[in-house]
Amino acid sequence: MNTYDLTGRTVLIAGGGKNLGALVARQAAAGGADVAVHYNSEASRPEAEKTLAAVEEAGRRGVLLTGDLTVPDNVRALFDDAEAALGHIDIAVNTVGKVLRKPIVDTTEDEYDDMFDVNAKAAYFFLREAGRHVTDGGRIITVVTALLAAFTDGYSTYAGGKAPVEHFTRAAAKEFGARGISVNNVAPGPMDTPFFYGQETPERVEFHKSQGLGGRLTEIGDIAPLILFLATDGGWITGQTVFANGGYTTR
């Protein structure tokens, strides 16, 4: 397992209970960090509890936090509670997202609102609270999508909902830069998690695999070390979207 030196650091991970967020939590703890693990609902609590147990088994302090992050007051409470439990927040990582594959002509207003609430609004207010709470010299990282560099159908509200995060991130990098805080995005390709498969046919899955290095999907193990690199040695990078997708898309 890849590890980076995070001794004495505290990491808050939104969506940290399972999949990519859980691996980031485990690797951060292995590197010496205390970890606040956020999960969205009771349905994901059992996996979040396993992640917390792994953090504690690594000899680090951890705390479980929950809340719907499309509500700004809940985002504020998330940072307040993480800081109260662990003393300070040095690194804030947002892995939260929701995917929908649907033609524009079939998309309802409720679906549009839901997708932009999860993918854009929650990300904006996560950045706001991170800017208020993260310590000087800290790091803020948001997971977006490689579809930001794609010319494709079906994902208008997913890629469209993630697209504003690039602008939010550039502004935050300028606004927080005087405090030595770097702010970046990571854009994975289609990841081999349940998040992806529900939207695709078997044939399209095979097509997506064929577009990546080695004929496979992106794995969470490809992305977690990159997030931790940006949180440590890669701190000079700021205001950027790093495409990590095995050549699936590029700009």
Rank of each mutant, 00 (worst) to 15 (best):
S44Y: 07
V75Q: 02
K50C: 04
V99M: 14
Y197P: 07
L6I: 09
M115E: 08
P194D: 02
F116Y: 14
T238H: 00
N40W: 12
E109R: 12
K18G: 09
G198L: 04
D5E: 13
A14E: 11
R179C: 01
E42Y: 04
L86P: 14
L213Q: 13
K98V: 13
R179N: 03
D106V: 09
T152R: 08
G239P: 00
I91A: 03
A123S: 14
A53P: 02
Q240N: 09
T218Y: 00
A122R: 05
E175L: 05
A123L: 11
E56D: 07
A224S: 05
E175A: 06
V205Y: 05
S182V: 09
N94V: 11
V93T: 00
V63I: 11
L20V: 10
I237R: 00
V134I: 14
L86M: 04
G180H: 02
L147Y: 12
A53G: 06
Q211I: 11
A85C: 03
G59T: 13
N245T: 05
G160S: 10
T70Q: 05
L217T: 09
K162M: 08
R128D: 09
V205C: 03
A146S: 15
D136Y: 07
M115G: 13
A85S: 00
T201I: 10
F126I: 11
E57C: 13
N184V: 02
L230D: 01
E129Q: 15
G161C: 12
D192Y: 06
D114A: 15
R76M: 12
G212N: 14
A244M: 02
F126G: 04
G247S: 08
I91G: 07
P194G: 06
A28C: 08
G62K: 03
V75P: 02
D90A: 15
T51V: 07
T241H: 00
P72C: 06
I91M: 04
L217G: 00
L64E: 02
N74E: 15
V205P: 07
I141E: 01
R251W: 14
T142D: 13
E219S: 14
G62P: 05
H38P: 03
P164V: 14
D80P: 02
G246T: 03
V242E: 00
P225R: 09
S210V: 07
K50R: 13
A82R: 11
L148G: 02
T3W: 06
E200L: 15
F243L: 10
V143A: 11
H38E: 01
V24H: 04
R179D: 06
